[in-house]
Simulated scan of single mutants.
Amino acid sequence: MSDSLKYALKKAKIKQLLKTIVISMCVVLIAIVSLYFAGNHFSGKNSSKLKEELFLYNEIAEPNIQIDSQVTTNSSMFGGNIITNRSKNVNGYLVQWNTLTSSYNWLTANIDGNELVTGGLTTSDGKSYEYDKQTKNKAATFYHPSKKYSDKYSTQLRNELDDVSSMNDHVAEVAVSFDQPYTFQEVKEKIPDDLNIAWLYMASPTDDTVRNYGFDPSDSPEKKYNHFIKSLKKYDNDGHDKTIQKFLNKNQTKPFHEVKILGVMLTGKTSNFKPLKNQNFIRGSSVGATAKIVPYITPEK
């Protein structure tokens, strides 16, 4: 083989090698760019899904809890966290509630379920109450009209209207559970005008699961109820939640004025709760967040 042929073959091999290297670099570059855009797409999609789920759950299952802000942290093409800051409006006084740290990635969106569930604490008198795990503030408890409560349950039936009425210069929220279901018109007739109806307790499991469903009726109760029905369907679109499906089957075709309510979350000055003491229609009552009245903040009522 002549020297010129050897040189030509060597030159061709080098050229082919360089071509292969360039092609490989282009393929790797395209793969990296594609991975980046695909990662951002799926990560962003689940980030939006997680935010929507947080607001949806807040609408139907969190009595008098409002979302103040949502901040995305540790965001990357692989996922990140959403920090949700929450509070309670107690008759015009904002009370700090917990902060949720929920995560998302390419495949999943996970709500911080541990912080959504209140904890239980036994007091010195042998009774127990629910509390927020972060702030350690007492959480108001609802009691289902047909559920039996005894020592075997983590939360016993309580009536705390006497206690909250004796507090001076405070505002409070109180979960009032009825002895039987009532219509909204009947509820309004029973509740004093100087108290705010902050949330309607509509449904819950009758076992020991702590999850209540309801909505804020302020401004337009009928419109809010129709929105509540749509939100329940959206939240349980696979039909796995028996409590939601039972409620929908019974009520989704009824007008709001015919739908029965199990209880209410009330807010107001503690002195305004006195007329509710010893009322027969109240099965149980539980105090939640409270705040001391100060001169520079005027209560709503």
Rank of each mutant, 00 (worst) to 15 (best):
L17P: 09
K15Y: 02
V22S: 02
K10H: 11
H41K: 15
L9S: 01
V27N: 01
C26L: 02
A38I: 08
A12G: 00
G44A: 09
G39T: 04
L29A: 13
V27S: 02
F42Q: 01
I23P: 00
S34G: 03
G39H: 12
K11C: 05
L35G: 06
I21L: 04
S24L: 13
A12Q: 10
H41G: 11
I14A: 00
F42Y: 10
S34D: 06
F42K: 02
K15V: 01
V28M: 14
I30Q: 00
F42V: 12
A31S: 05
V33I: 10
K13P: 11
Y7S: 04
A8V: 04
S34A: 06
A12V: 00
V22N: 09
H41P: 14
Q16P: 14
K10D: 07
L29R: 05
K11T: 03
I21D: 10
M25D: 00
Y36D: 11
K19Y: 15
S34Q: 07
V28H: 10
T20I: 11
I32C: 04
L17K: 05
T20L: 14
V27F: 02
S34T: 05
A38N: 02
V28S: 11
V28K: 14
I30P: 09
S24H: 06
G44Y: 07
L17G: 08
M25R: 01
F37G: 03
H41E: 14
K15D: 11
F42T: 04
I21P: 08
N40M: 10
Y7D: 11
A8M: 08
K13Q: 10
K13L: 12
V22T: 08
A38P: 01
M25K: 08
L35R: 09
V33H: 06
L35T: 00
L9R: 06
L35N: 09
F37Y: 14
I14E: 12
F37M: 05
C26G: 02
F42P: 00
H41A: 13
K15M: 01
I32W: 03
S24W: 08
I23T: 05
Q16A: 12
G39F: 15
Q16N: 14
C26I: 05
I30N: 03
K13V: 11
K10L: 07
G44P: 02
S34V: 05
A38K: 02
I14H: 07
F42I: 11
I23A: 04
L18K: 14
T20P: 00
I21M: 05
H41R: 15
Y36N: 13
I23L: 09
M25Y: 13
K15A: 08
F37A: 06
Q16R: 14
K13N: 10
K10M: 09
A31L: 08
K11R: 07
L18E: 15
K19H: 15
N40I: 07
